[in-house]
């Protein structure tokens, strides 16, 4: 899914290009820096956990990497592409699952996937296998009526339809019950390509990743193997009040 050799020559990039590489990346809103001085290199296929308390800059960092927000400072390359030069090419290779649904409340799950597929150039998308993969079935009602767990599954189905080289997940476990968390964890574990997970459910999310960074007040305070993520979180925030255990 990651490298389609039949693509246009524009897309033929040297294979070792990192999924994300940023140097001195920073973003501000008005007079406030959301994050700054972020140097990060995520090799293709690697899974990175971004830890941090609320307001530490995780969400903004993910939005900047996803090209939805332009960086205020620094250089960013996504899959070897500078998004400032060719945003379309960069966007084609990545997908972001954010707090918000990113889908249409008035359409059914099937409609949503079909509409999205068509925009991606997949006109005759077979939605049934995709829905089955995320544990949903065809339902005629609009997703306005869906539970939080079903919404998350549908978001993941849209992600599978796109099949990007780089997946950005912002708090994928938020608002889910333990069963939902376990199911979503399984789906994320099976994702191909590079994955960046922002979460404060450190224990659960660190199991999914190889490497982790810890953000605090807009700065990267620690970077290391995911096995030490819990230790790093405790070193900064102390105590045993870790969220998302089990």
């Amino acid at each position: 899914m990651t490298a389609d050799t039949s693509e246009a020559p524009v897309a033929a990039l040297p294979p070792p290009a990192a999924a994300v590489s940023c140097v001195g990346l920073a973003r501000r809103f008005g007079r406030r820096w959301a994050f700054s001085r972020v140097d990060l290199e995520v090799p293709a296929g690697q899974r990175l956990l971004v830890m941090g308390a609320n307001g530490s800059g995780k969400t903004t960092l993910l939005k900047v990497i996803s090209t939805l927000l332009a960086p205020s400072l620094g250089q960013l390359r996504v899959c070897g592409i500078d998004p400032a030069e060719d945003p379309a090419a960069a966007r084609r290779r990545l997908h972001l699952l954010s707090h918000s649904l990113g889908l249409y409340e008035d359409l059914s799950g099937e409609d949503n996937l079909r509409v999205f597929g068509r925009l991606l150039g997949k006109d005759d998308l077979d939605v049934d296998p995709v829905l089955r993969q995320v544990g949903l079935e065809r339902r005629p009602d609009p997703i306005r009526a869906y539970s939080a767990g079903m919404r998350k599954r549908l978001q993941l189905a849209a992600l599978l339809v796109k099949g990007p080289e780089l997946t950005l997940l912002d708090e994928p476990f938020a608002a889910l019950d333990p069963l939902g968390c376990a199911a979503v964890e399984g789906l994320i574990a099976a994702l191909p390509g590079a994955v960046i997970v922002a979460s404060h459910q450190v224990v659960r999310a660190s199991r999914l990743c190889e490497r982790a960074i810890l953000m605090d007040q807009g700065a990267v305070r620690w970077m290391g193997p995911a096995e030490q993520a819990v230790e790093a979180w405790r070193a900064l925030h102390g105590g045993d009040d870790l969220q998302g255990g089990g």
Partner: peptide, 15 residues
């Protein structure tokens, strides 16, 4: 439609 559920972001990234 586009703003409430963040669908605009999905469209932008489609792209």
């Amino acid at each position: 439609h586009e703003v409430e559920g963040g669908a605009l972001d999905t469209l932008t990234l489609a792209p």
